[in-house]
Simulated scan of single mutants.
Amino acid sequence: MSTDTGPAVQELLPAHTWDRLEKDPNAVLIDVRTKAEWSFVGKPDLSSLNRSVITIEWCEYPDMSVNPRFVEEVKEALDGSHPSAIFFICRSGARSMNAARAVSASSGDLPGTPDLFNVAEGFEGDLDSQERRGGLNGWKAQGLPWRQS
């Protein structure tokens, strides 16, 4: 009986994630937040790297149930490409870790054997002393490229 659950999910801070994305044209970033978050909060912008963020909801709004097709949708989004690394990002790093673990557990379904990373702190980061996100840490607070639609 095999206990192999796929490659381990590593964690990187947003700035290190950006560095890896800059240096590795075969790395991809998957934003697993909801459509509402992408629209109203914004999303990472990889246009300066001539790439786009892949957007696939891990939890579906409004009931926040786990997307049962998530891994399948990741595979479809990769469209036969063989990324060297896949970075998963959400609001603060929790949902994206769960999404990365799901992909890790199904890694045999993906082309190649990409390294899997959770973006620690996520897009908006942790709550600050006023219970607001976006200023303490995370992708936006570190001044990394992002846009709002």
Rank of each mutant, 00 (worst) to 15 (best):
G108M: 13
A77V: 12
V71K: 14
T113N: 15
D79P: 13
L13T: 08
L110Y: 09
P111A: 10
A94N: 14
E131A: 13
N26W: 07
S106E: 05
R133Q: 14
D126T: 11
T5S: 08
A85W: 03
D4G: 04
I54P: 07
L127F: 07
D126Y: 06
F117D: 05
S106P: 10
R91I: 03
H82V: 03
Q148I: 08
F117N: 11
A99H: 04
W38F: 15
S48T: 13
A27M: 03
E76S: 05
L116P: 02
N50R: 01
A85Y: 02
S92G: 07
K23D: 07
E121C: 15
L13A: 04
S39G: 10
K35V: 15
E60Y: 00
K140Q: 04
A27Q: 00
A94P: 01
S84G: 07
P114N: 05
R147G: 11
K75P: 02
R20V: 01
D115E: 14
R51A: 13
T17W: 00
Q130N: 14
Q148A: 14
G125V: 13
P68H: 13
D115P: 03
L78V: 04
Q10R: 07
N67L: 11
R20W: 11
L46Y: 12
W139S: 04
L46E: 10
L49G: 01
R132G: 01
V53E: 05
W58I: 00
P114E: 01
A15G: 10
D109R: 15
V32F: 06
R133K: 15
K140N: 01
P62Q: 05
N67S: 02
I30L: 08
S65K: 11
Q130D: 06
S65E: 13
V41W: 11
S48R: 15
L116D: 12
L29H: 05
L49P: 05
V41G: 02
H82I: 08
K43M: 12
G135P: 07
E57Q: 13
C59R: 09
R51N: 07
A27R: 00
D31T: 12
D45S: 14
R147L: 12
E76G: 07
A85S: 06
R51Q: 02
G134W: 03
W58P: 00
T113W: 10
L144N: 06
G6F: 10
L116G: 10
R33W: 08
N67V: 07
V74D: 02
Y61S: 15
R91F: 02
G134F: 03
S106N: 14
A27S: 06
R147V: 04
M1C: 09
V28I: 05
S81D: 09
P83G: 11
Q10D: 09
A27V: 04
K140D: 00
D4T: 09
V71L: 09
L46I: 14
G138K: 05
L110V: 04
D109N: 15
V32H: 01
L13M: 12
T113G: 10
Q148L: 06
N137V: 08
Q148G: 08
R147E: 06
W146H: 11
D63N: 02
W146S: 10
L46Q: 11
A102T: 06
A120M: 06
G125A: 09
D128W: 05
F70W: 07
D19N: 11
G138M: 08
F87R: 03
E73Y: 13
E124Y: 04
W58D: 01
